[in-house]
Design a protein around this nucleic acid. Structure first.
Lengths: 330, 330
DNA sequence: TTGTATGCGTTATCAC
DNA sequence: GTGATAACGCATACAA
């Protein structure tokens, strides 16, 4: 493959001038510029970014590190990130950690070794301490999932409030026995949402019953299993608040096995407003997060860090929205 | 940040020796090695891959270029790719083209400029000619979606046969009027599947009616709209074969609006066996592709190209499987 | 087994 | 407006 020297020879200029045509065209005399551009065309020259990156010590590549792209929640967040990235000439690459700390660490080595200019972390596997360390040395932003007593900027919603509004909606519908199927025990957002669940009940003077709180995973199967447990209780819940839409759909599947009517005999509320919530039968009541905007804010934050811009607000909370559909209201 | 020279000074060796410890440890005397490793620890040295990459003219980074990660079909394919990549010390980065040729081209510049060692293309926006050109100069593999008269290796299923088996299943259930909701007009797999649809009908001596063939998109809304068109025909189809699971679910949604019973009054078959097909109500009959294996084969193929290994088979077809569920059979 | 020296391809500083 | 050249950090051919 040809390099900048070949172009320079072909156009009878120095490599410096070729570089200028590439990066600061306005500083080159028009005539010279034309000659260089012609040469570039003729020998089909493509700048080698490996050289450029080394020289500049920057790649304009930014990674989105998430659990797994199969999680439908992320798609719109990614869109938001991509939009801002594109506008600012950054490349976005997405990497899965597959919930494996070792795999996550492998990808983070791309950051440590300068291949990436920054990273947006969606659901870190890293220990708090290591995350702090990483954030202190490299450009890192937390998005959606976050740990707030670190000095790492984040964009998220107020999960406690969001869960509160979901449960409040069920209370308003007259439900008293409300089950909660949570996510992973050590996932911050799940803990925050549990607080919101409890707070809503307390506020209404309802005793919190541990038997109604199930810690599970975010998955479909988890939703099925935990619902089976809830429905085998003597005093069955008349409503279930699930940590994600998929979990809620697992719940509905099980409810169907028990031949209970939704929402008449039992109501279900999910979380995330993923596309399936609108497509499912019955359509699912859920909490919408401003996913695209979260991505946009996160990427802007990351750019500000990379470029050492002043950052006004390192902790950004955006508004959620309760979306009421068939699964909780006739 | 410290570099290889700092380590060399600290350990009182040459940079060459440090490099050897990093890359060919067995060629260094044990005692020296220990000293170097200690120095690396002490100054917390992390090799700068920008330098290494330039020197080696390789990054061990490989891109999966797809339409959008939100498509649930890809998740298991990606898993397969990741598995083989991990085993062979390659980094996998995923990029969306968002069906935008310009965006795709931007990402492909990473390949052209040597930032990537290769790319697996899931659904190219590139013109056939440009794809051919790209494949002739760089390591490229087509996966799932493919154009077969190019000299670019691919891994896929036999879409015609797969569609045939879906339609044959419906015929076996006694259906004669079978609608087909296709994908994009210029998507190879959609064309191939249409052939399979037609072939199955012909084989059974059934006249192909254009009114039963709807060209749409792969989406939910497309499924809804096209089904509305099909159900407003005087002679309604009693079965619908959809190009994807999501499209099939859109179809079901509309069928429900018409208060038709599935599968008694109308049967539905999807394509891809994505997780939603099992979760949906009713559970969806569909065609399963060996997604993980497709990913594995594609990545192995790509590695073989990158490393200039001999390649026995450049065109790999894997077996599909018909999965019969509630939406087509009681 | 180790050190010296070179070059990968580019950009940016400095001089003209 | 342009050219000469150093430097980015590393791996490797060659010499010792």
């Amino acid at each position: 493959m040809s390099n900048i020297k070949d172009v320079a020879e072909k156009a009878d200029v120095s490599t410096a001038t070729v570089s200028r045509v590439l990066n600061n065209p306005h500083t080159v005399k028009n005539e010279t510029k034309k000659r260089v551009q012609k040469a570039i065309q003729e020998i089909d020259y493509q700048p080698n970014m490996l050289g450029r990156n080394l020289r500049r010590s920057s790649t304009r590549m930014v990674m989105i590190l998430l659990e797994n792209v199969s999680n439908p929640f992320y798609s719109r967040v990614i869109r938001g990130i991509e939009q801002i990235a594109l506008e600012n000439d950054y490349y976005i690459v997405i990497c899965n950690n597959n919930s494996d700390p070792a795999q996550e660490n492998t990808y983070l080595n791309l950051l440590r070794s300068k291949v990436l200019d920054g990273v947006i972390m969606m659901k870190p596997e890293l220990s708090k301490k290591k995350l702090q360390e990483l954030g202190s040395r490299f450009a890192v932003v937390q998005c959606c999932e976050y740990i707030d007593d670190l000095d790492i900027p984040f964009v998220s919603i107020n999960n406690k409030k969001a869960a509160y509004s979901a449960v409040k909606h069920l209370l308003d519908q007259g439900h008293q026995n409300i089950g909660f199927i949570s996510g992973g025990q050590n996932v911050p957002s799940a803990q925050q949402r549990k607080k919101g669940y409890k707070y809503a009940l307390q506020e209404s003077g309802i005793t919190i019953k541990q038997k109604y709180i199930k810690n599970g995973t975010y998955g479909y199967k988890g939703g099925m299993e935990k619902t089976r447990e809830l429905l085998s209780l003597k005093e069955k819940p008349t409503a279930i608040f699930a940590i994600s839409d998929i979990t809620a759909i697992g719940a509905i599947k099980t409810i169907r096995e028990y031949n209970l009517k939704i929402p008449d005999e039992i109501a279900v509320v999910g979380f995330d407003n993923t596309s399936i919530s609108r497509m499912y039968n019955p359509e699912l009541t859920t909490i919408a997060q401003p996913r695209k905007e979260m991505g946009q804010k996160a990427m802007q934050l990351l750019i500000d860090i990379i470029q050492h811009n002043e950052i006004k607000n390192k902790n950004i909370f955006l508004d959620h929205k309760l979306i009421i559909r068939e699964s909780s209201k006739n």
